[in-house]
Design a protein around this nucleic acid. Structure first.
Lengths: 132, 132
DNA sequence: ATTGGTGCAAATGCTTTGCATAAAG
DNA sequence: CTTTATGCAAAGCATTTGCACCAAT
């Protein structure tokens, strides 16, 4: 994988964020440093970086994918109303993979716990900007 | 919620399937009984039924949502290559909700374990019809 | 009679792609 | 010099919506 200026900055900015941004949210951030970057470059790099195991692609809780630069194992909650994602701190004494009794022929190589709920903003009832 | 012919048949056919179909897969099945039904009706009813807690909307990997008529608590695996979803039989001695130490202000009301892997067809290396 | 649901087609919105140009190794 | 990545615009595709008509209560 060739190291381009765009790729470096995308990774760098994603790692700075703890918000699990969508592609376009990250685009807005990266544009400040690379005003001529294309949204297609953002998408292509996020895809590539997740294939290479350098970032996580989060595909739950709404229609926009979200991305996470933190590769330490951890769990997420997502807000069923606005789609925001947050890390969740959990007890670490359960090995999820050991829970499987019958995988129906699937070769399982990852397992994780995910939570659903309401984010602090949506709990207040006010409409939360980021809808879905 | 008004009981229409369409709504009844959509629910009935979804409950028969163990494949966690996408909206258009279910559309193909329902069309055999209601040839004039619209895909919009499928989407509207699946959304409505999941709001009412009568079915589950699955938003894992892949771009298409999948739906499940089986409301008994259980876990899923999804194939990272073709997007197929299958039930997984698991040990039942862990209460996922008790694992939370810090929910970062989110009000959590659901938690579940989900697995990633390769389905039997994709393991064989052949290309699996249902791509994503 | 009233309200909610349906079918159709058009619109939306996130994501991907084709292609000519530019940059990396 | 060769290969891979970029920017731009256009295309793709799942899903949603506006609207006139229809059906359930």
């Amino acid at each position: 994988m060739r190291i381009t200026n765009q790729r470096e900055i995308i990774l760098e900015e994603l790692r700075k964020l703890k918000t699990h941004p969508t592609a376009d949210e990250l685009y807005d951030v990266v544009k400040k440093r690379l005003p001529r970057i294309s949204i297609a470059t953002i998408y292509r790099n996020l895809e590539r970086l997740s294939e290479e195991g350098m970032i996580h692609k989060l595909e739950y809780g709404g229609r926009q994918k979200r991305f996470d630069g933190d590769m330490r194992p951890h769990c997420h909650v997502f807000c069923v109303k606005c789609g925001r994602v947050s890390d969740v701190e959990t007890k670490n004494d359960v090995n999820i993979m050991d829970m499987v009794l019958d995988s129906k022929g699937f070769k399982i190589f990852e397992g994780g716990v995910q939570f659903e709920g309401l984010c602090p903003l949506c709990q207040k009832g006010d409409d939360c900007e980021t809808l879905q």
